[in-house]
């Protein structure tokens, strides 16, 4: 690595890694350091708890979005209809 290995992580970085773990974007090493941080930092523990709770309920809600193409098509059709509608 060349650099000194960092074990202490500042809070803002911890939050960033916490966000990344919600999307499975964090590396193993980042997760280890995050968990070390969570041992002694109450504020981040709370944020981390809320954050994973949010992930969980969004997963539970089974929300679906329309894909981009479909929205584009809808937009075009609506635009056409808007132009045809007389402005009152």
């Amino acid at each position: 690595m060349g650099k000194k290995i960092k074990i202490i992580m500042p809070c803002n970085e911890a939050n960033h890694v916490c966000d990344k773990t919600q999307y499975k974007n964090a590396t193993l090493w980042e997760k280890i350091i995050l968990n070390l941080h969570l041992i002694y930092c109450k504020v981040c523990r709370k944020y981390s708890k809320n954050n994973s709770q949010l992930t969980k309920i969004i997963y539970k809600a089974h929300i679906e979005c329309l894909d981009k193409e479909c929205k584009e098509k809808m937009k075009q059709e609506l635009d056409k209809a808007i132009k045809e509608t007389p402005i009152n």
Binding site: N15, H16, D19, K20, Y47, N50, L54, I57
Partner: peptide
């Protein structure tokens, strides 16, 4: 992107907290 995500998640958690957490 991550800054935006962070703000959004904080706001969403705050908003959903009362009834759903």
């Amino acid at each position: 992107l991550w800054v935006i995500i962070h703000r959004a998640r904080t706001a969403m958690a705050e908003c959903l907290k009362e009834n759903w957490f």
